[in-house]
């Protein structure tokens, strides 16, 4: 059974249907990609899955639980982690402090123990920092751990956001345009990271403009347009799809008018 199950979801903004009867599933260890032109509803779909947007219709299941009505933070604690198209980091904090936030729900320390610097808080902090350093290590960010994120280039900021998501030890990881702003070498590292995470049993759902990246790294691909699923299949099958040319050229598909 799939880990994430999206069934017949509909979201409407005023009179526009952003999503209209969309279904999708991702299993543990599977990498699923979503392709589609601007305004097709890709980010809205991730928002619905992470809980930022509430669907008017349909159902979202995670594992055995129905999470359709669950707020964002509770889903996060169930193991849903994501990155954002417009990076959501805390600019005045360092890389390490930002990534430490990913550990916060597993850290066993509260207001009193933190404020009084009790051993309990100290232990939790040492443990979390060790974990963060190993994640930063694996992403090649170790040397930057004391740098304020505001001073980093966009591609590196996206890596920091991924590091924060990894520290949540997610069962489902969603990447929203994680590769944009990254250059060749960094992009290859991102691909390797995705493969490694999938092998360790994480369900991965990614949105990407870079069609080649999606075709190279995903097991299964959906093409979305005008708020509806237009095609789906393995990377090999999608490569033969006539819709792919439209996406390469940035043309609207499924009768949708492209809105940036």
């Amino acid at each position: 059974m799939a880990h994430l199950e999206v069934r017949d979801v509909a979201v409407r903004f005023g009179t526009t249907a952003a999503l209209d009867g969309v279904s999708l599933s991702v299993s543990r260890g599977e990498v699923v990609g979503i392709l589609g032109p601007n305004g097709a509803g890709k980010t809205t779909l991730l928002d619905v899955i992470s809980g930022i947007e509430r669907p008017q219709k349909g159902e979202i299941r995670l594992g055995t639980a129905d999470v359709t009505a669950m707020p964002v933070e509770e889903r996060a604690r169930l193991g849903v982690a994501r990155t954002f198209q417009a990076v959501e980091l805390l600019p005045s904090l360092t890389v390490e402090e930002n990534v430490l936030l990913g550990c916060q729900s597993r850290q066993r320390s509260g207001l009193i123990s933190d404020g009084l610097r009790l051993p309990r808080s100290r232990r939790a902090e040492v443990l979390a920092r060790r974990e963060v350093m190993s994640v930063l290590d694996s992403l090649g960010l170790t040397l930057l751990h004391e740098t304020p994120v505001a001073s980093l280039p966009l591609g590196t900021q996206r890596m920091v956001e991924i590091a924060r998501a990894l520290c949540m030890q997610p069962s489902l990881l969603m990447l929203d345009e994680a590769g944009s702003g990254m250059e060749g070498d960094m992009l290859r590292r991102l691909g390797a990271l995705i493969a490694r995470l999938a092998r360790s049993g994480t369900a991965i759902l990614l949105i990407e403009h870079d069609v080649e990246f999606v075709l190279a790294n995903c097991d299964f691909i959906y093409i979305i347009g005008g708020g509806r699923m237009q095609a789906r299949g393995t990377a090999a099958a999608i490569r033969r799809s006539p819709l792919l040319a439209d996406i390469y050229l940035g043309r609207a598909i499924g009768g949708a008018t492209a809105v940036a």
Partner: peptide
Amino acid sequence: RDSETAARAVGVNP
């Protein structure tokens, strides 16, 4: 304080 979106995404109830 800085990003309620980020806070909620890591499981914080604002």
